[in-house]
Design a protein around this nucleic acid. Structure first.
Length: 112
DNA sequence: CAGGTGACTCTAC
DNA sequence: GGTAGAGCCACCT
């Protein structure tokens, strides 16, 4: 069976975010098979050291960068997002989250 | 075992 | 649109 740890699944979910798109911590956790573990996703990203990991594509549920404005991580994330064509204004991603979930792409809505 | 903390989320006002 | 409170999970003292 898959001896994959929760952290590995979360990292995989983050890597699966297409360039130019963003996802929320809760969405990433859910796609990793860990619903309700948004906080775990945040912790995993804070501990991660993979330069190829598109961690900057992960935002809070309201589309805001999870760092305090002006902080180092904030500037880095905003810069990386703009480099991918994502519009960021005042720490907020404009045009809303490109694709909140894969479900939205497949089902057309939030499984409601 | 209790208490505090955090790259979180939801609901209510 | 924003703030406030509670809920949540994993980890550290």
């Amino acid at each position: 069976m898959d001896g994959k740890s929760s952290a590995e699944r979360i990292l995989a979910a983050v890597r699966a975010i297409p360039r130019g798109q963003v996802a929320g911590y809760g969405e990433v956790a859910r796609r990793a098979g860990l619903p309700g573990r948004a906080r775990l996703a945040a912790r995993v990203l804070s501990e991660n050291a993979d330069p190829d990991l598109p961690w900057h594509r992960v935002l809070r549920s309201d589309g805001r960068i999870a760092f305090p404005e002006g902080s180092r991580g904030y500037r880095e994330q905003a810069q990386r997002l703009r480099a991918e064509g994502v519009r960021v204004v005042k720490g907020r991603v404009q045009g809303r989250k490109a694709v909140a979930t894969l479900d939205e792409q497949v089902w057309g809505f939030d499984g409601k």
